[in-house]
Amino acid sequence: MSLRILAGDPPPCGGVLLAREWPSRLDLKQDALDVVAAVLFAHALVGEDDRQWLVLCLDEAIVNAMLHGNEGDPGMPVAIEVTADGDRWCVTITDRGAGFSVDQVPDAEDPESLLLEHGRGIRIMSEWLDELTYYRGGAVVRMARRRSAPARSSDAV
């Protein structure tokens, strides 16, 4: 896995299905997760079989934005946008933090990292997503994947 942290903004990813902000409060994390997941399921972009991985990936990304990006400051919102372009969906999460560097993420190939108690979230997300890229130096994360539920004629986005 190679972690990509770019300087610019993420490229467009189709039409907007959801654009909302939540305060950086972990007690609101579940609401954010449920709202985003509901949009992806409602548009048949993610299949029921993938619910577990979707929840795990969203949880990791939202917690990272709230706790690490915004340092748990409830006055700093986390913006979440769900977009889709044909058979590809994107969830883009933006925090107000300064981003991070590759050096701050443990190297999965380093045996020393096996016993670390942190740094596994990115590995978990990379396992299921087709794309996991950070923009604005790490303050924006773009998660993308191909549609995994059978498309319905009414789901054109």
Partner: peptide, 17 residues
């Protein structure tokens, strides 16, 4: 268990140690 986060995995590593 159906869902567990990397934070919980970290706790399991601490317990293992």
């Amino acid at each position: 268990i159906g869902y567990l986060s990397s934070a919980m995995l970290g706790k399991l590593v601490a317990l293992f140690k």
